[in-house]
C-alpha cells in the first residue's frame, strides 16, 4: 500500500503523465474531426458505423496511451536510474510490480475516461455540424465510455508488462505504437479470426464496436483480463529474475 501511494506520487510529480494525456486528447480530437469530415454520409448512417469509425477512436487511442503510461512507469525508472532507489527502499520486487500495476490501472482508467468522453462529445459535434443524425443512444455512449475505461485500465497493465520485459524505453514505446497502429490493423484486415483476438481489437470489442468481426464485450473483456494478468506475471518474473546494474 505504501508502495502504491509512492507510485501514484511518481505519476503526479513529473510532466510525463500530463503530456501523455494532452497528446492523447489532441489525437482523439484530430482523429474524430478528420473522420467526421472525411467520411461519406453513407459511411456514417448507422449507430454501428458512427461508433466504429468515429467515436471508437477514443477507445483505440485511450488504450494505446494507457499502454504507453504503463510501459513508461517502468522504462522511465530504468532510463533515469530511479529504479535503484526504488528497489533499495522496496527490495521485494514483486511488490513494486504489483504497486506499479495498480497505479498504472488507475492512471489507465483516467486516460480511458478522458479519451472516450472527448471522443463522444467530438463525434456528436462533428456529426451535428455536418447535418448527420447522431444514431448513437445513451446505451451506446455508456458502453463506449465504460468499455473504453476498462480497456485502457487493462492496457496500462499490458504496457507495464511490456516495459518490464523490454526495460529500454525507446524500443518499448516504438514497439507498442507499431503494434497498435500497424500490426493489429494488418491482422484484422488479412486474418480477422486471429486479429480479433489481439489486445487492440479486444478493447474495441469491449466497447461494442463492429460486432460482425470483433468479440462481444463480455468475452473481449475476459480475454483482455487474461492478457493483462499474463503481462503482469511476465513483467514480475523478468523483474525478480534479472539483475539491475
Amino acid at each position: 500500500m505504501a508502495q502504491l501511494r509512492a507510485e501514484l506520487l511518481k505519476l503526479r510529480t513529473t510532466r510525463t503523465t500530463i503530456s501523455l494525456l494532452a497528446a492523447m486528447i489532441g489525437l482523439v480530437l484530430t482523429a474524430v474531426v478528420l473522420h467526421g469530415y472525411g467520411l461519406t454520409t453513407e459511411d456514417l448512417d448507422s449507430a454501428s458505423k458512427q461508433l466504429t469509425l468515429l467515436a471508437g477512436w477514443g477507445v483505440v487511442l485511450g488504450a494505446l496511451f494507457a499502454g504507453l503510461l504503463g510501459a513508461m512507469s517502468f522504462t522511465g525508472e530504468i532510463r533515469y536510474g530511479t529504479i535503484r532507489p526504488t528497489l533499495l527502499v522496496t527490495p521485494r520486487r514483486g511488490r513494486v510490480i504489483a504497486a506499479k500495476s495498480a497505479a498504472s490501472m488507475l492512471g489507465g482508467i483516467a486516460f480511458g475516461l478522458a479519451a472516450t468522453a472527448v471522443a463522444a462529445v467530438a463525434a456528436s459535434v462533428a456529426l451535428t455540424a455536418r447535418g448527420v443524425d447522431v444514431r448513437l443512444d445513451v446505451g451506446d455512449f455508456a458502453l463506449l465510455i465504460f468499455g473504453g475505461s476498462v480497456a485502457a485500465a487493462l492496457w496500462a497493465v499490458i504496457g507495464l508488462g511490456v516495459g518490464a520485459l523490454v526495460r529500454n524505453q525507446m524500443p518499448a514505446v516504438v514497439g507498442l505504437l507499431a503494434w497498435v497502429l500497424f500490426i493489429e490493423g494488418q491482422l484484422i484486415d488479412n486474418a480477422p479470426d486471429l486479429g480479433r483476438l489481439a489486445p487492440g481489437p479486444l478493447s474495441r470489442g469491449i466497447s461494442g464496436m463492429d460486432p460482425d468481426i470483433l468479440l462481444a464485450p463480455g468475452l473481449a473483456a475476459l480475454l483482455l483480463v487474461h492478457y493483462a494478468l499474463a503481462a503482469a506475471a511476465a513483467g514480475r518474473l523478468a523483474t525478480t529474475r534479472r539483475d539491475f546494474v
Binding site: 510529480t13 513529473t14 510532466r15 510525463t16 533515469y80 536510474g81 530511479t82 527502499v89 522496496t90
Partner: peptide, 19 residues
C-alpha cells in the same frame, strides 16, 4: 539516479512514502 523533471523534494517524498 533522479528524474530530471522532478524536484528534489518530490524525489524524497516518493521514497519516504514508499518507506
Amino acid at each position: 539516479d533522479f528524474h530530471p523533471g522532478r524536484s528534489g523534494r518530490d524525489h524524497l517524498r516518493v521514497l519516504a512514502l514508499a518507506a
